[in-house]
Amino acid sequence: MGLHRWWQVTLVIVCLFSSSLVEGLKTYSDRKSLDSFLRMQANEEIKNPKTGVLYNVSLPSNLTGMEVSVVRLRSFSLWSRGMNYSFFNLPPRIMSRPSQKRITILYENLGNCSSHYYNVPNHTMVAPVFGVMAYSSSESALVDEKINFTIHGDPIKIWFPLADERGRNHTPLCAKFTDNGLVKFKNMTKPYVCEVHRQGHYTLVIPSFPFPDELHTHSHGRRFTTWWVLGFAIGFIGLVVLGLILLALVMEVKKRKIRKMEKNSAGEELFDTFWIGETKLPLASSIRTQPILEN
């Protein structure tokens, strides 16, 4: 193979590598671009889908942690039997609007990508964002245009796995993300279960600010610490004062003993005194006999 041929092969490899690298680094910065990509990915990957069969959609590495599945259903089947899948329960008596012969249900679990695309002001998400979306389905496209649900029976139930343990300490709220960016809240009907009447994206949240019991606990802890430090300081000072008083009493007793010893010495004669360490002792003066000279 000539040198020119090697350069052509190298150029093709570099182009393919660059293309895959760009695709891997490609990001979907907002919800609309993500929804468009997921719909396009499902159509490109799944060819000639069978009705009633659930398909998992492969995603690029930059969306690792996200799970997407699609299923094509006949409208009559959805109305008569509903559809159960993983964390989702679609009960019977659901009708598409406008009416379609076949519809595609797209299930989304945004996983650890949830906080990148969704957030709730003054609240913390304690579960991943789940999406249940309905699309029209044609012979040429598995996922076509977005349509709506009309529920004439029981609501759709979504079971949420907790992604944050704080959700176990406080009762979360169901949060629905609307198309215009607003968030609607609703109480759970069962632990970590949301009942919804519309397609869309949902999650569980708790308020970000401390709860009253947490405030009480923190306040009680601060008061306990303050009183403990104050009590320790008062106790320490009290011990020091008591020690000084006892030392003064001992010194006074010693002084009285010494004075009594001096007073009771022989002949009531007062002696000079001298100190050995901290002890005062009597000292007798020495008298020397004067020498007499002899002749």
Rank of each mutant, 00 (worst) to 15 (best):
I206H: 01
L182C: 03
T189N: 08
D144V: 00
C194W: 02
L142H: 00
T225R: 09
N148W: 09
L182K: 05
R223M: 15
P191K: 05
V132M: 10
K186P: 01
L215I: 14
F236M: 11
T203F: 00
G238P: 00
G235R: 02
N169V: 12
V129R: 04
P155G: 13
G167D: 06
I237Y: 14
F130K: 01
I158Y: 00
G200Q: 02
T150H: 06
H152R: 15
T225N: 11
R168S: 05
R168L: 13
F211W: 08
T203N: 11
R168I: 14
K176Y: 12
R223C: 06
G238D: 11
G221E: 14
P155L: 14
P212G: 04
P210E: 02
A141C: 01
V229F: 10
N148T: 06
K176H: 13
V132Y: 08
N169C: 04
E165T: 12
G221D: 14
V229M: 13
V126M: 09
M188L: 08
W227F: 14
R222M: 06
D164T: 07
E145N: 10
S208L: 04
L142S: 09
F224K: 13
A141T: 06
R222W: 10
T217I: 00
E139N: 07
Y202K: 08
A127D: 04
S219V: 14
E195M: 11
F149L: 03
I158R: 04
P210A: 07
I234G: 09
C174R: 01
G153R: 14
H218N: 12
M125V: 06
C174H: 02
D179W: 02
E214S: 07
P155T: 10
K157D: 11
K157I: 01
W228Y: 06
G153W: 06
D144A: 14
D154M: 07
M125Q: 13
Y202E: 03
G153L: 09
K157Y: 09
H170F: 10
L204M: 13
Y192D: 11
V132K: 00
I158P: 06
G131T: 02
H220M: 15
H216L: 15
T178I: 08
L182I: 13
T178M: 08
I234L: 14
A127T: 11
K184Y: 10
N169E: 09
H197N: 12
K190G: 03
V229R: 13
G181S: 08
D154A: 13
G131K: 01
G221P: 04
S138Y: 00
F177Q: 02
G167K: 09
C194M: 07
L204G: 00
